[in-house]
């Protein structure tokens, strides 16, 4: 049970990074990204490709950073002339394109079979100590990501993001470059999502296109909507809450003697129901955004 709890906590940390990243885009910048999982995939495949071609750990980080910067830049670029709802659809489509490329370019990515046997983050350790080490790494990276996000959103740049979200034309009229804000926000948050993907690949030791289904993006959306859009702690809390609920659904199933399909179905009900319920009755989420801005940054 203890090992299972550590595993759940590691997944909580990884999803918290994804939620922080998406919250920066949606909650602060008003960028309706439905392709978040592609940025996670960039990190995961960065680790996998470096392993496959024996390039080393540092090269894996560089590949992950490069891929996520490119995909984030492409996301921001296609939004140049699109309104937010159309941009959201475009990001969903682009994420699917990335997944299909990964599935079909087997010579590079291993295709549908993926790439397995990736080196763990702490190969010199084993068993429980390795798990605890993984948890420490995940917790530390999450803490760094949280502090970086807090610092960014309290800066003049963060104020610009909020202004862009509220009144884009007005933000331009006080001198903010909207395109540069969008690009910067996407690339920075892309790095956080890629970091989650990179660690995930080394933790699970396997990467495949099935990890990049768009349903994962909507899970992350549910985390930030339930936790509270525009609130970093809300995003982290939402990730922990949903991950813990998901982890304990199988125990509920066993207790009540329900069929196995109940687990998968219940997860979908929780994501969809949570999203709808909070959007209808508590739009601010469990931890509402602190409104107001800094006057002179």
């Amino acid at each position: 049970m203890f090992d299972f709890l550590i595993h759940v906590l590691i997944m909580c940390c990884l999803y918290s990074m994804l939620a922080l990243s998406l919250n920066l885009q949606v909650g602060f910048g008003g960028l309706m990204n439905f392709g978040q999982i592609a940025l996670f995939g960039c990190g995961a495949y960065g680790a996998a490709l470096a392993y496959k071609y024996d390039l080393g750990f540092a090269s894996g980080i560089l590949i992950a950073v490069g891929l996520s910067a490119f995909v984030s830049w492409a996301f921001a670029g296609i939004g140049r002339n699109l309104q937010s709802d159309y941009w959201g659809i475009a990001t969903l489509a682009l994420a699917e394109v990335v997944r299909i490329i990964v599935t079909n370019e087997g010579w590079l990515t291993g295709g549908a079979q993926g790439i397995s046997g990736i080196k763990p983050l702490l190969p010199e350790l084993s068993g429980r100590s390795q798990q605890l080490g993984n948890l420490a790494i995940c917790g530390a990276v999450l803490l760094v990501a949280l502090l970086a996000c807090m610092r960014l959103t309290r800066s003049r740049y963060g104020l610009g993001l909020k202004l862009m979200r509220e009144e884009p034309q007005l933000a331009q009229s006080v001198g903010y470059d909207i395109m540069s804000l969008k690009r910067g926000c996407m690339i920075f948050s892309g790095f956080i999502a890629a970091a989650a993907g990179f660690i995930f690949a080394h933790y699970i030791t396997f990467v495949g296109p099935d990890q990049m289904f768009s349903s994962e993006t909507f899970l992350i959306w549910a985390m930030i909507v339930i936790g509270g859009l525009g609130n970093h702690f809300g995003a982290v809390f939402g990730a922990f809450l949903l991950q813990f609920i998901f982890a304990f659904i199988p125990f509920v199933k066993d207790m009540l003697g329900l069929p196995t399909e109940f687990v998968a179905a219940m997860r979908l009900v929780l994501i969809g129901g949570g999203l709808i319920g909070f959007i209808l009755w508590r739009r601010t989420g469990l931890f509402p955004e602190k409104v107001g801005g800094r006057a002179d940054g």
Binding site: R156, L159, E166, L170, V174, G292, G293
Partner: peptide, 20 residues
């Protein structure tokens, strides 16, 4: 229309113009 940032105070709105 939409010529002020509604969630900000009067002071914050004015000072936004003072960036440069």
């Amino acid at each position: 229309t939409d010529n002020v940032f509604s969630s900000m105070s009067v002071t914050e709105n004015i000072m936004l113009g003072a960036r440069f």
